[in-house]
Design a protein around this nucleic acid. Structure first.
Length: 940
RNA sequence: GCGGGGAUGCCGGAGUGGUCAAACGGGCCAGGCUUAGGACCUGGUAGCUUAGCGCUUACGUGGGUUCGAGUCCUACUCCCCGCACCA
């Protein structure tokens, strides 16, 4: 069997017959899809798993009789392609090296200088990959995103106008990590250093000097603002004075720069030494005047270089203050009144559960901190306190006044934002952002925080919207088996407003402000609807493609536009939508899949809301995490020659199921092709062979087959493809083999045919090429894809038959063991003991009680004098007996008779004497061994 | 840190209170069939031992519930995904 030939042959014939082109008809439809891949490289094994799940499900549903729509598009929206193209233009070594590694010549690479080339090249090769892998996609509906596709572009514009009309798009400002060189936001993947670092929002608090200039401190804990007892400045450090409006601010030069980058209008007008500030009194929020004290611990690279001190709720502040209050020399050095410093007392502001009203003091004691040098312990104490306050702290009576609301008794965490906003409004504070750590971009510049003004948002934080999304999720089916429901519920609640526009990148312009481009995740939320008419809309002159058209097709609104295909487009949408399943990796639950729900709920009526999502884990390759650096990425284009398509498909789906990470096992893939061959042989040799009469084992074979079909169907319905393939391939194969062995290769013709046919059909989702080929060899009419999934006849399933068959197998094994004894040990007398009488009695008793509660049964039985001496064995025996039921009557005499021939043969062959007797008839100690159904063997 | 999902033999993985030394595969070992085999068939693959039985340990770690725990409870350790404006 040449798998290469088979692949080519069927690929071609499927295409010729347009087997997977789906059109509306009278059948029930099933629409499934997967996120379009971003086309900045070749598809690899990671894609294969996610898409294979969709593909296998599509094939399964087709066999189930559904009219299946499975389309595929390509994602070009966003900045990675543009960024990569730019790096190629700039001859960046890393980028060129990557392209060379992908197998491009230097001349080829040059073509990738243009972003457009990426969107032509990779969709083309990716489509080839999919086709080679045997994917049953309707390619007429293929498309790319962005303005490069004017039809899709108009669709996205329609989508955004709709969202805006409904009030789901809003404008505001937003901090982002920014590369000042390329003038672009820097996502995690665009960094050479500082992954995971984000902008952190601080509140700048103003403290007024007697001369009205302001000292600015940066804080995360504006909720404790009424507890400020003093302010720290760093001795010897030169602060900068800058003009902000009509105020003069004193802070570090570095922080001024950052504020300017964040759009703050600041003009530097001078400088002032820290020593000059120390000893002055500043007016803090609330009107009190407090001292400026010296602190050498201040890191002037962070914050403003000025720190305000809340010793009640900050262990750092408290320990610093305490040490200073003991250090007369330092106070003298800075001309401070030592008594005044000693008089400073923490001001309680928060009530924290389980702690005193000076929580910082409790923490210092708990961690036994006596000096600011114990920085690690301080860090831990700070963290613990922060956590405690976040969950339980409430404001004390000080907070009755000072704000527009009485905050006394309220949870501090709930009103942090409120306080921040009021302080800013009243001119006591300003916003300030700082990165949580250093970030170096791929262009090797240090990133900054930029405050993007007039940023458009999707209002995913909207509570009413969330409610509707929850309602949508409640009705959805999640594959497999609800595995990700918890996560979805959580994400819906957690999601905040999402910036949906960008300054650069490929995509669609925001219809009402064309200087913005719609961000990539935001434009890919309802495009599954576009598949339903993607192949028809291209006949419409582009000028006639407008909002009225989309209103009509997608919402049935307005009068019918006079354009080609209009009725068909409307019909296709109505027929196919909503989609039934969308499958993706588990990483997209947190954004894309949930966005999809939000957008559908916003735009479509309830009967067009998504019906199902599937999610899966991340593939590992031979037990190792897949990564470029490990070099263990297997590209899709290598699959057909390296492993064979069917082997690759089956392997990737056998690796695991559920949200766990599946594993690609190369050895397994290699071993498969031989197995395929023997499957083909097994089918060809045994199809239409055998007898018409019925025998005892036939009932078993039928039961077994129906049982496998039943289980396999259940698994496939839940996208448990690993289980499904296991049953259809391995388990059914071994059942067929056993059946043939038991019938001496003379099976019932009807049954063996049904076994073979069922196996081939159930294997179609996994190995379509093999199946079509063997199907044809059997003289069947192509294509197997148009056949019907086997139906399990439940009336034929009888688990007792299976148990009996198992006993036959056991007895055969015993015979085998006997043979071995005779042959190797040259013994001549063999006795097979079946289980002793009391065990059978025990079965009867146990079953009589009819209880599934083993404890009860045990108690009853152990009271029975008959079983007293066997009490020790009871716990082991009883559950087994209760579960197996009928096994007490075995080994079946009938089955043993069937093996008499074998015994006779052995006796003759080895001149031996073989006896099968009941254990109770023997005094031999070994006769007591063995459970019902499993005789013990004695050889002499 | 927070949310979700995990941890089982040489390996991938079944198993959700009792037929469990662990399905089904892969790998490896032995035997058979063969000119030969990477093909196929049979058996083996925790430890001790046996012709067969049997016994002793085992399911991330430590406690607990139960006649009985991989399976339930509890604490801890480690791994994967996400934590945002990025595909």
């Amino acid at each position: 069997m040449d798998f290469q030939d088979i692949q080519d042959k069927w690929k071609k014939r499927w295409a010729e017959e347009k087997l997977f082109e789906a059109n509306p008809d009278s059948r029930e439809k099933f629409f499934l899809n997967a996120p379009y891949p971003y086309v900045n490289g070749y598809l690899h094994i990671g894609h294969l798993y996610t898409y294979m799940r969709t593909e296998a499900f599509a094939r399964y549903k087709r066999l189930q009789g559904f009219n299946v729509l499975y389309p595929q598009g390509w994602h070009c929206t966003g900045s990675p392609i543009e960024g990569a193209a730019m790096r190629i233009r700039e001859k960046e070594e890393k980028q060129w090296e990557m392209m060379r590694k992908s197998g491009f010549s230097d001349d080829d690479i040059k073509k990738f200088e243009k972003p457009e080339y990426w969107t032509e090249y990779f969709p083309k090769v990716s489509r080839q990959d999919y086709t080679d892998m045997g994917f049953s996609i309707d390619w007429r509906r293929e498309f790319i995103t962005t303005s490069l596709n004017p039809y899709y572009d108009k669709f996205i514009r329609w989508q955004f106008r709709k969202l805006k009309e409904k009030g789901y798009v809003d404008i505001g400002s937003h901090p982002v990590v920014w590369d000042p060189k390329t003038n672009m936001p820097v996502g995690d993947h665009d960094r050479t250093e500082g992954e995971g670092e984000t902008p952190q929002e601080f509140t700048l608090i103003k403290h007024t000097l007697p001369d009205q200039r302001k000292l600015l401190s940066a804080t995360l804990r504006q909720d404790t603002i009424l507890g400020i007892t003093n302010v720290y400045a760093k001795p010897g450090f030169e602060y900068t004075i800058a003009k902000s409006g009509d105020e003069e601010w004193i802070l570090s030069n570095a922080s001024i720069k950052r504020l300017q980058q964040q759009g703050k209008d600041l003009e530097i007008i001078g400088s002032i030494s820290g020593n000059e500030l120390i000893g002055q009194k500043v007016k803090v929020f609330g009107g009190r005047r407090v001292l400026v004290l010296p602190a050498t611990f201040i890191d002037v690279e962070k914050g403003t270089g000025i720190v305000h001190s809340v010793p009640s709720d900050s262990p750092d502040d408290l320990i610093t203050l305490r040490e200073l209050q003991k250090d007369e020399a330092v106070c003298k050095k800075y001309n401070l009144d030592f008594d005044e410093v000693k008089d400073i007392q923490p001001i309680p502001v928060l009530n924290t559960e389980g702690l005193s009203n000076i929580p910082a003091a409790d923490l210092l004691e708990k961690y036994k901190i006596t000096s600011q040098q114990q920085s690690q312990k301080l860090e831990e104490a700070k963290k613990e306190l922060y956590k405690l306050s976040f969950y339980s702290s409430t404001f004390n009576d000080l907070y009755k006044e000072g704000f527009s609301k009485n905050l006394s008794g309220k949870k501090a965490a709930d009103f942090k934002d409120f306080i921040r906003d009021e302080l800013i409004e009243q001119g006591h504070a300003a916003l300030y952002y700082e990165l949580t750590g250093k970030v170096i971009t791929r262009s090797l510049t240090e990133a900054i925080v930029k405050l993007v003004e007039n940023q458009w948002f999707m209002k995913y934080g909207d509570e009413d919207w969330k409610k509707q999304v929850h309602a949508c999720l409640d009705k959805m089916k999640l594959y497999p088996q609800d595995a990700s429901r918890e996560q979805f519920e959580y994400v819906i609640d957690w999601l905040k407003d999402w910036a949906c526009t960008r300054e650069v990148g490929l995509g669609t312009q925001l219809p009402w402000e064309e200087e913005w481009v719609i961000e990539s995740l935001s434009d890919s939320t309802i495009y599954m609807a576009y598949y339903t008419f993607a192949h028809l809309i291209t006949d419409v002159p582009i000028d006639n493609v407008n909002d009225e058209l989309f209103d009509y097709i997608l919402l049935g609104k307005g009068s019918k536009p006079d354009v080609p295909n209009i009725d068909r487009m409307r019909e296709e949408f109505e027929y196919w939508y909503p989609f039934d399943v969308r499958n993706s990796g588990k990483d997209l639950v947190q954004n894309h899949l949930t966005f999809t729900l939000f957008n559908h709920v916003a735009i479509f009526p309830e009967d067009k809301w998504p019906k199902g999502f599937g999610t899966n884990g991340w593939i590992t390759v031979d037990g190792e995490k897949m990564s470029k650096s490990r070099g263990n990425m297997i590209m899709l284009k290598e699959m057909p020659t390296k492993f064979g398509v069917d082997a690759a498909r089956l392997t990737v789906l056998s690796g695991g199921e559920g949200v766990d990470d599946p594993n690609w096992n190369s050895d397994f893939a290699q071993a498969l092709n031989n197995k395929f061959e023997s499957l083909a042989t097994l089918a060809a040799v045994n199809y239409n062979k055998g007898r018409d009469s019925r025998e005892e084992v036939d009932a078993w074979a039928e039961s077994k087959l129906n049982h496998i079909i039943q289980n396999c169907t259940t698994a496939m319905e839940e996208t448990l493809f690993r289980t499904g393939s296991q049953l259809a391939f391995f388990e059914l194969t071994s059942a067929i083999k056993w059946y043939l062995r038991r019938t001496n290769n003379n099976p019932n013709k009807e049954i063996i045919n049904r076994m073979i046919e069922s196996q081939l059909i159930m294997m179609v989702p996994f190995t379509p090429f093999l199946c079509d080929e063997v199907w044809e060899t059997l003289g069947k009419k192509p294509f197997i894809s148009t056949e019907k999934w086997p139906q399990a006849d439940e009336s034929r399933i009888d688990s007792e038959l299976d148990q009996k068959e198992q006993v036959v197998e056991t007895v055969m094994q015993d015979i085998y063991a006997v043979k071995k004894i005779l042959k190797e040990k040259e013994m001549t007398k063999v006795t097979l003991f079946t289980a002793p009488e009391w065990k059978y009695q025990l079965v009867k008793e146990a079953r009589k009680s009819g209880s599934r509660n083993i404890g009860e049964v045990l108690k009853q039985l152990s009271q029975n004098s008959e079983f007293n001496e066997h009490t020790k064995e009871l716990p082991k025996l009883v559950p087994r007996i209760l579960k197996t039921g009928e096994i007490s009557s075995l080994p079946a005499k009938r089955e043993r008779e069937a093996l008499d021939g074998a015994i006779a043969f052995l006796e003759k062959e080895f001149s031996a004497e073989i006896k099968v007797i009941d254990a109770e008839d023997s005094d031999h100690p070994k006769a007591n061994n063995g459970l019902p159904g499993k005789p013990s063997i004695l050889a002499e």
